[in-house]
Design a protein around this nucleic acid. Sequence first.
DNA 1: GAGCACATGTAAAAGGTTACATGATTCA
DNA 2: TGAATCATGTAACCTTTTACATGTGCTC
Lengths: 165, 165
Amino acid sequence: MFETMVLANLMCHPCHGYELKTYLYRLNPNNNKIYPMLRQLNQKGYVETRTQIQEGRPNRKIYSITEEGKTHFQQLLRDFDFAKAQNADEFNLRVAFSFLLDDKDMGKILELRKNALEHQRNVPDPMYMVGENEDLAQLRQLHTQLREMELGYIERMRGKYSAHT
Amino acid sequence: MFETMVLANLMCHPCHGYELKTYLYRLNPNNNKIYPMLRQLNQKGYVETRTQIQEGRPNRKIYSITEEGKTHFQQLLRDFDFAKAQNADEFNLRVAFSFLLDDKDMGKILELRKNALEHQRNVPDPMYMVGENEDLAQLRQLHTQLREMELGYIERMRGKYSAHT
DNA sequence: GAGCACATGTAAAAGGTTACATGATTCA
DNA sequence: TGAATCATGTAACCTTTTACATGTGCTC
């Protein structure tokens, strides 16, 4: 997820590490996660780097995605399964970059997300089932509403990407 | 998160490892995560165990939460910050177990979740901002709707838990 | 003068992933 | 006969967390 999200950001525009940390704040992007990751991506040829000299501030290492990086990113997007389909971020990312995927891949992604949401409906998390808490029941209802709305959305999308058998 | 969710399940009823794996399927609960975790919790005195002998099937190790375990779980719930507040599961868990928290703690939790959601509104994830994708715009709108509904919910709850200054 | 923002980096410890192992039962 | 479910476990590897280090400029 972290690697994929770094590349997703670099797909939009070149970034330096510190900048990526602010974008990826939801993924707990500490120093020993982001900086070694960027060096690793560079070693594999997925990103290239240049140094931006600044006065009165530390220099920046600006990373840009390469053609090999774009191909690799596309491959990461195609790699979608039931476990990843549970995660809204993983699904949203693929919708965001649907222009990199063909109809067959997108069809599979939509189907897996549909399965994940239906699974959540049929086998709800036990922790949302604790006690007879009225506050929790209301919160649960909010999430149920979103899930049903998302299932509706998926059905509409599946019409568009209906190339798969 | 994993430790907390294991204890949350044990708060409801005793479980064996394989059973917890099915409940916690969204947290990628592999063997080398769940079994060492349960032994660790046992060593710390947070859970106790008994063996259930079965015929024709492998024996089960049934884990129950202890009083020390309940106190520890309560402490884990109290430990809530901006980073955790980004995660819906972390928030929902605390609503589910709000009966273990006093009004002051719950007030802080609601405020932090509010801050997190408002931050998401003000500083949207760059990956949801990619391109002029119509499909993505619709999905984004779904999530915006849920966020505003959840913010409304939090305002209502804050009225109830308004003991904090 | 303390603390934060900027920007990158590493050491040590903890934790997680992948893959394999056991062994009975059930299903296609 | 091969695969899946039940149930627990470990070895080897990889990743992540926590904490520290550097040094300037800005704000309280």
